[in-house]
């Protein structure tokens, strides 16, 4: 155990928390203020627990508890990600004492701005996972029969792959990216559930794929078994909203809590797609056309 930090003289007795709330998808957001008792060594999750227990705003109004999400409480699942004091991060690893040093007046909590809000601080990350499907971010093994032991990975490859494998799909890289814009569709009157889902799918499939998926594509393209799908992954990266949509602002790499070298993955994807495009130009273009006719 790490010993708690020594008590400072001027510790506040209460903390003011400003929360951006929203009652449901597509509804108007509104701010609410809460005062909670200060304790040492709190994180934002414990702040949210206190708010839920109290469920009373600063002017004494009883309100429904603020909704939020969390899982691991140790910054490996990504589900507690939100915008804290204007910056996207995990609430489980956002320490209150540290936040108060930056801004002693209040802590500001907002849902991520690039995903549809479900309720309060809960958001819908479907598009993030859809991007992983677009690049087939998995190893194709169906386990019907034993393939024997896997290929041994040279050390350099292990060292290149390990950092990329730490991605927890939190979405920080997407929240901070100026090229990744929010898509929020609502079901129209007279539209069936299937039609709506299909429309959403099409929108998610052509919009910017995001740094996390580009990086995962590079991870699985160097995996001995994952390589089998390398061409399909590059096709996805060369499709609409692929790697070319990145504008090189490099915010993704700056905010990634796992310090994944995202911009290295982006440049590597840039090179791989350059090579693939030249190859397609000289070899594969005829094949592609035939395929299109067949579709």
């Amino acid at each position: 155990m790490i010993a708690p930090a020594p008590l400072k003289q001027n510790q506040p007795s209460q903390i003011r928390v400003r929360v951006l709330r929203q009652d449901g998808p597509g509804q108007d957001p509104y701010w609410q203020l809460f005062d909670i008792d200060y304790e040492r060594e709190m994180n934002v999750i414990s702040v949210l627990q206190k708010i839920a227990a109290k469920a009373t705003t600063v002017d004494g109004k009883k309100v429904s508890p603020v909704a939020w999400d969390c899982g691991c409480l140790e910054e490996v699942c990504g589900s507690c990600t939100m915008v804290i004091n204007g910056r996207v991060r995990q609430s489980c690893s956002a320490l209150v004492d540290r936040l108060l040093q930056d801004n002693p007046d209040e802590i500001v909590l907002q849902p991520m701005t690039k995903f549809p809000v479900v309720r309060d601080l809960l958001i819908d990350r479907q598009r993030l996972f859809n991007s992983l499907k677009r690049v087939k971010a998995w190893v194709p093994v169906d386990s019907y029969y034993n393939l024997g032991p896997g290929e041994r990975l040279p050390r350099v490859d292990q060292e290149r792959a390990y950092p990329l494998s730490q991605c927890m799909s939190c979405g920080c890289c997407l929240e901070a990216c100026p090229q990744f814009n929010k898509i929020e569709l609502t079901q129209e009157a007279g539209e069936t559930q299937e039609q709506f889902e299909a429309r959403k799918q099409a929108a998610y499939d052509t919009a910017f794929i995001g740094a996390h998926a580009i990086s995962q594509a590079m991870l699985f393209n160097q995996h001995p078994t994952g390589k089998a799908l390398a061409g399909e992954r590059l096709d996805a990266l060369m499709g609409p909203g692929g790697v070319a949509t990145c504008g090189n602002a490099q915010n993704c790499v700056a905010v990634c809590p796992k310090e994944i070298p995202l911009t290295t993955s982006i440049a590597r994807a840039g090179r791989a797609t350059t090579v693939a495009a030249i190859k397609n130009w000289f070899e594969g273009s005829g094949e592609k056309k035939e395929q299109r006719v067949g579709e």
């Binding site: 910056r87 100026p178 814009n181 504008g247 915010n251």
Partner: peptide, 18 residues
Amino acid sequence: TGRSNTSHYTYANNRRYK
């Protein structure tokens, strides 16, 4: 089509992007 956010993310590369 880009949405600059340099007020929240004040990194040098983000400014260069803008």
